[in-house]
């Protein structure tokens, strides 16, 4: 489970950044008073246009960034007070995730298993299961740099799941991938739901959200615009489709 309360993140703007952003403000509010809850066995989607604060929120959830204010609880652990403990429960995957090109999938998976303290027995069991599931046996000894994008994505998935995380965070996981490769991610998200894991994924692709999510939150310019179940969202829609409704809500927020 993930519980987020009044989450805030401000970045100090250097003179260089002030010039780039054409502002005299000394801080930029990336996330402002965002609260939501993600339940195990349900898929939560964080939606928002580019620059809305999705990635910053995901980075705070994954303990990469320390929030300026608010609370984050991951699998019952205070992620701000005990980030290392929280990380043990999290699997984190982004669309821009890079892999160590000079390592083989085997070496990379073992590295992350060791970092997460996975026992030898569990490692072998999970590795074989994931390799079977993702059909990775054939290229397990090849250098990652020589693998195709699809193969690399499979390695990324395996890396994310090797420690059997309770909570899985996907930050725009299909960004830049073709439909065939993206399908691996979609399947992974579904599998996580089936395994009663807590899943949160950020996206700006409405079709993906429509396909997968049970609950959603929409943020824009760091502020919460909508939070509720997908069912409620559909029933309250004032536009003809999800994309139009998403745009309507964003515009309404900006106008107010």
């Amino acid at each position: 489970m993930i519980r987020v309360e009044h989450l805030k993140k401000e970045f100090v703007l250097t003179r260089k950044l002030q010039k780039e952003l054409a502002t005299k403000d000394k801080v930029a509010k990336a996330v402002n008073d965002v609260s939501f809850e993600c339940q195990p066995g349900r898929i939560f989607s964080l939606l928002g246009p580019n620059g809305a604060g999705k990635t910053t929120t995901m980075r705070m959830l994954s303990t990469l960034f320390i929030p300026t204010g608010g609370k984050i609880e991951v699998a019952g652990i205070d992620a701000i007070a005990e980030p290392e403990e929280a990380r043990k429960k999290i699997g984190f995957l982004t669309g821009s995730t890079g892999l160590y090109a000079r390592l083989t999938p085997n070496e990379l998976i073992k590295y992350f298993a060791d970092l997460y303290g996975v026992s030898k027995q569990d490692f072998e069991q999970r590795k074989n299961h994931l390799y079977d599931l993702l059909d990775m046996h054939e290229f397990q000894h090849k250098r990652i740099g020589k693998l195709s994008t699809g193969m690399k994505q499979k390695v990324s998935i395996c890396r994310t799941m090797i420690h059997d995380p309770e909570v899985v965070i996907f930050d725009e996981p299909t960004s830049g991938l073709d439909v065939i490769t993206a399908e691996n991610i979609i399947q992974l998200i579904r599998d996580c739901k089936e395994q009663q894991k807590t899943v949160i994924f950020s996206s700006h692709i409405m079709s993906e959200v429509d396909l997968l999510c049970d609950d959603l939150a929409i943020i824009d310019k760091g502020n919460m615009v909508y939070s509720g179940t997908m069912e409620d969202f559909r029933s309250q829609m004032q536009s003809k489709n999800l994309t139009s409704e998403f745009i309507r809500l964003i515009n309404e927020n900006r106008a107010s």
């Binding site: 980075r59 994954s62 303990t63 990469l64 290392e84 403990e85 990380r87 043990k88 999290i90 984190f92 982004t94 821009s96 995730t97 890079g98 892999l99 160590y100 090109a101 992350f112 970092l115 997460y116 303290g117 890396r159």
Partner: peptide, 14 residues
């Protein structure tokens, strides 16, 4: 630059 540091920092290593 290669985008691997972000992943490493989300692992339970200080």
């Amino acid at each position: 630059e290669r985008g691997t540091l972000e992943t490493l920092l989300t692992a339970p290593a200080s």
